[in-house]
Computed example of a mutant assay.
Amino acid sequence: MTRLDPSVEYRPLIMIIPRRHLTERQLPEGYHYQSYDPTLEKAWIDLQCSVGLFKDPADAWAAWQTFVPSIERFLFVADTQGNLVGSAGLWPGTHFGPERLRLHDVAVREDHQHKGIAQAMICKLSVRYDEAPGKYPLYVVTQTNSYGAVALYSRLGFTPYLGAYQGCTEEQNHANWEIATKILREKVPA
């Protein structure tokens, strides 16, 4: 996960991964999962805004309020000083009609990125998802201006979803992925 790139046009993207594809990975040395604590609110809001997932702390706070009743589906990663450096969750989405869980709000502070924190959280949440009954693959909603995240999801085994979904025709989705592919070729080193 990197910061959203405001110079890149926003286009929504969905990626999916087969069930039972990932195994848990350890967090890098110096990091640990932190249990939910109501005092995480401000740190979570700061984290989400720092990577551009929310432009305004008020919007992040409103999202936080919707997450708290089901906070057990979220992970929080702290450094050795107890500072929140990463979070991710499984959250309901309705992109395919009926509500089902998806990977949501994966964020790692910029100065802690590229160490394996996001990978560890994604793998842990994927294993949790696989342990729940269901027939659908895990999915994640991302966007063209988050090409670093798209590259990470791809390396982990997520693939582009190319069909129609709520609010997006199959043709528009194909166009979005064509743009995303061009951006990835230009912006992400091979």
Rank of each mutant, 00 (worst) to 15 (best):
D59K: 09
D59Q: 12
D59I: 03
D59V: 07
A60R: 01
W61A: 15
W61H: 15
W61C: 13
A63C: 12
W64Q: 15
W64C: 10
T66R: 13
F67D: 09
V68W: 08
S70N: 15
S70E: 15
S70A: 12
I71S: 08
E72R: 03
R73S: 10
F74P: 09
F74S: 14
L75Y: 01
F76H: 04
V77K: 01
V77C: 05
Q81F: 06
N83K: 11
N83M: 06
L84F: 11
L84K: 10
V85N: 07
S87G: 14
S87Y: 01
W91T: 07
P92I: 00
G93Q: 11
T94D: 14
H95C: 07
H95Y: 13
E99W: 04
E99M: 10
L101F: 09
L101M: 13
D105V: 00
V106S: 07
V106W: 01
V106N: 07
A107V: 05
A107P: 13
A107L: 05
A107N: 09
V108P: 13
E110W: 01
E110L: 13
H114Y: 08
G116F: 00
G116P: 11
G116M: 00
Q119T: 15
Q119V: 10
A120F: 00
I122D: 05
C123T: 06
C123N: 08
K124E: 15
K124G: 05
V127A: 06
R128G: 03
D130K: 00
D130H: 01
D130L: 02
A132I: 11
P133A: 05
G134V: 05
K135T: 14
P137N: 09
P137D: 09
V140Q: 07
V141H: 12
T142F: 05
T142R: 02
T142C: 10
N145L: 02
Y147N: 11
A149F: 01
A149L: 04
V150C: 14
L152T: 04
Y153G: 02
S154L: 05
R155S: 13
L156D: 04
G157Q: 05
T159N: 12
P160T: 02
Y161V: 03
L162E: 14
Y165L: 09
Y165G: 05
Q166L: 09
G167W: 01
T169N: 05
E170M: 07
E170C: 04
E171K: 09
Q172Y: 03
N173Y: 05
N173V: 02
H174S: 09
A175N: 14
W177N: 12
W177Y: 12
E178S: 13
E178G: 13
A180T: 11
T181K: 15
T181V: 12
K182M: 13
I183D: 15
L184V: 13
E186C: 11
K187L: 08
V188Y: 08
